[in-house]
Design a protein around this nucleic acid. Structure first.
Length: 335
DNA sequence: CGATTTTGACCTGCGC
DNA sequence: GCGCAGGTCAAAATCG
């Protein structure tokens, strides 16, 4: 996906290096662009002091003015950086909107394909490639909220309940080999299997409230990125979220409204993880969509992307190079 | 001692 | 019908 045509990602880092005022330079506020009425009173003295006093006073005045000027310069710089920040935020918002539009198109295509398969007589077992396709959709969010082929191939002995299937992607520590996805619910592991399409074992969990709660969870490491756990939830909890009953904060993930959410930056791009398992009060199709349009989510995405950028050593190195380059350039032209 | 995890055996559906 | 693969069961082991 080529985003370069959407937004101008070049950063106009208009950095003014801090100037050092020579002590013998005339104190002229307007020379530095300071408004006449802001000119400090100490600049208006007319009486000529003694030579010793003049030397000392000149230094003090210059020092005070230096501080005054630097404060103004910093404020100016701050406003400029704020403006840059605002522009970047707008760019990120635009990117999020474009992403949402594309995702909606993808959802439309997937739902149309699902309808086709529903009509068709194919009883073909879910192939390994379909699993890979799921993995390739890094930010599928609510895709499984609609019926998927996996669901359609369910055994007939299972009731025709429209088991909601959602998928969550969770980044783990590099050395973490456990298949534990902390989503606030309590799970009981009942099996583990090595599947053909992925060398990593797949763990099977049932909700601890079983058999009253029919929710199952499968956890397997992503074949693309071993540090990413793919958790597939089947069904809906028929009991409140444990963290809702207990005091808030027991859940590890960041909670946005009723949508537990976490995000991370994978090597291939940002990974947004939405835990779409919900309480039964929200089974209508409308509310089963992730609230990516909500301002909180948008703000969260922006903050996550910004923090990911600042944590990226390549980005900080490039930023430092750009700033130092600009400063050197200005040093040469002004000093 | 009860709850949870591990793990080999078993079940089921599908393709050939 | 057989083999394969995914999913589940259940006894043993482990943990708190």
């Amino acid at each position: 996906m080529d985003n370069s045509s959407w937004v101008d990602t070049s950063l106009d880092l208009n950095i003014n290096p801090l100037r050092v005022i020579k002590s013998d330079a005339p104190v002229d506020a307007e020379r530095f662009g300071m408004p006449r009425k802001m000119k400090p009173a100490f600049m208006d003295f007319q009486t000529k002091p003694s030579a010793k006093e003049e030397s000392s006073l000149s230094f003090e005045v210059d020092f005070i003015f230096y501080i005054y000027f630097q404060t103004g310069a910093l404020e100016e710089e701050l406003s400029r950086v704020s403006e840059e920040n605002r522009k970047l935020t707008e760019m990120l918002t635009l990117m999020c909107e474009n992403y949402n539009a594309l995702r909606n198109q993808l959802m439309d295509c997937m739902s149309k394909n699902g309808e086709k398969e529903l009509r068709g007589p194919s009883k073909k077992r879910k192939s390994a490639s379909s699993n890979n396709n799921d993995n390739n959709i890094a930010m599928n969010g609510n895709s499984e909220s609609s019926s998927s082929d996996e669901e359609l191939s369910k055994k007939p002995r299972e009731e025709v309940i429209k088991a909601k299937i959602s998928r969550a992607y969770v980044r783990t520590e590099a050395g973490d080999t456990s298949l534990i996805v902390k989503d606030g619910y309590q799970w009981r592991k009942y099996g583990q299997k090595v599947t053909r399409d992925n060398p990593s074992p797949r763990a099977y969990f049932k909700c601890s409230f079983a058999p009253s709660c029919p929710v199952k969870k499968k956890v397997q490491r992503s074949i693309d990125d071993q540090s990413v756990l793919v958790a597939t939830y089947e069904g809906e909890h028929n009991h409140p979220h444990p963290s809702m009953e207990a005091t808030s904060g027991s859940s590890r993930g960041l909670t946005l409204g009723s949508v537990p959410c976490s995000a991370s930056l994978a090597s291939s791009g940002p990974t947004i993880t939405l835990d779409l398992t919900k309480s039964k009060s929200s089974n209508d199709a409308k509310s089963s969509k992730p609230k990516t349009d909500a301002p909180e989510v948008r703000q969260f995405l922006v903050e996550q992307m910004a923090s990911s950028l600042t944590k990226d050593p390549n980005f900080t190195a490039a930023l430092a190079a750009a700033i130092s380059g600009r400063m050197l350039q200005q040093n040469h032209t002004q000093w």
